[in-house]
Amino acid sequence: MLHTVNKSPYETNSLSSCLRLARKGHTILLFENGIYGALKGTCFENVVTDALNKYQICVLMPDIEARGMRVDNVITGIKTVDYAEFVDLVASNSTVQAWL
């Protein structure tokens, strides 16, 4: 199952609810302002790093780059994807849930 999170974790609890309710082995894609949850050196880094033991976490690079960040800013273990790979993620998971 694929979960998408498009909200900054500083703004809403979309990411925390998603991390709480998704099941082991699920994939989570952070995009739009959701990418702020994928960055190193933040108060969410530990939580997200721990979550990597349970989930595959991906982040959409165009949204990272648009916000002045680079791949170096992304927490180690998070997979960077482009729109084409976003499409692949949707195709390879039978259900997609958006955490708006």
């Binding site: 498009n6 995009f31 302002n33 729109y83 084409a84 499409v87």
Partner: peptide, 19 residues
């Protein structure tokens, strides 16, 4: 909101992949 932009980029990418 970015929603329509993201949807557009996604749709374009999906079409390009032959979906």
């Amino acid at each position: 909101h970015q929603a329509s932009d993201s949807a557009y980029q996604f749709t374009k990418a999906a079409l390009k992949k032959g979906h």
